[in-house]
Amino acid sequence: MNPNKALWEKGDFTKIAESMRESGAALVSQLGVTKGLKVLDLGCGDGTTAIPAAKLGAHVLGVDIASNLVEAGNRRAKAEGLANCEFREGDAVQLDGLEDQRFDLVVSIFGAMFAPKPLDVAREMVRVTRPGGKIVMGNWIPGDPTLVAQILKISSAYTPPPPEGFISPMLWGVESHVIERFTSAGVAKEDISFARDTFNFEISGSPAEFLARFRNYYGPTMNAFEAAEKNGKAAELQQELEELFNRENKSGSSDATLIPATFLKVTVVRR
């Protein structure tokens, strides 16, 4: 099996995505989505940004490598009565079956950044975007002190080194790498812009409860704990993550969790 597919089907990302709904909708509200707009949401999960875009009247196709998340997205769209929102399985590296210049807007919020072969990912996103359309990515930033970058950093310290040739997904959070990838796909440098933005994770439970979701349902954290347990370091990993989640909780209560995380928002105009 594709290792990327195995990673994201390993747990159940919907348990994390439940904490991302409000920020997903808020981000989509800034994208100028209008009725009839053709939108591709790449690495869509169960629809954190696809569902809000469809509610604004866009025709949305969500594509994700994990079949369980595609099924969950289609269930959500059906429950919401959104006939204009469809989810299907696919790989950001090669968008089979999607014709050139099909979409007005291509969105990928913490999705396509995790696909291997980033040059191919950039090329495919550009290929399926019509002239005059836009690509918007949300990418975690390496070394950033906020939640997700630190979860991934801490987890990586407990897992075996990646295979030779592995390209870190976090490089999508570095402007120079983003520019290199999109210019290689034919985009002019001046058509690529960047902004720092914030995504909030919010649940009614405690930070410890939220961490338990990552330990039990988030592929990278699950892998880190499995490796740590083999090395007798699971308690150490748990403590590091507990300190992180408690430190980053801005809810003002030990029984609620509100954790802001900084990301790099990338906007590409297709000429």
Rank of each mutant, 00 (worst) to 15 (best):
R127L: 08
F263M: 13
S155V: 09
N139D: 12
E248M: 11
E226I: 08
L27S: 05
G62S: 06
D197Q: 15
C44T: 09
E226A: 14
I135A: 14
L171M: 15
L40K: 06
E190P: 09
S206V: 04
Q239P: 00
F166V: 11
A122Q: 07
K15N: 00
P169H: 12
E124I: 04
R21S: 02
V39S: 06
E164H: 13
E124L: 10
N84K: 06
F201Y: 01
L147T: 04
R75Y: 01
L171K: 15
Q239S: 13
A26L: 04
M222W: 01
D46E: 10
N246I: 02
L119Y: 14
R181Q: 13
G252R: 10
W8I: 05
K10L: 13
Y158I: 14
R213K: 15
N139Q: 08
G138K: 10
A157F: 07
P116T: 10
L105T: 03
W140N: 12
P169T: 13
S254Y: 01
S193T: 15
T159Y: 06
P161H: 14
S184K: 15
S23D: 01
V268R: 05
A112W: 08
G111Y: 04
N74Y: 00
P118Y: 13
D104C: 04
A208L: 14
K38N: 08
I151D: 14
E242A: 09
S204C: 00
L42M: 01
D100H: 09
R75K: 13
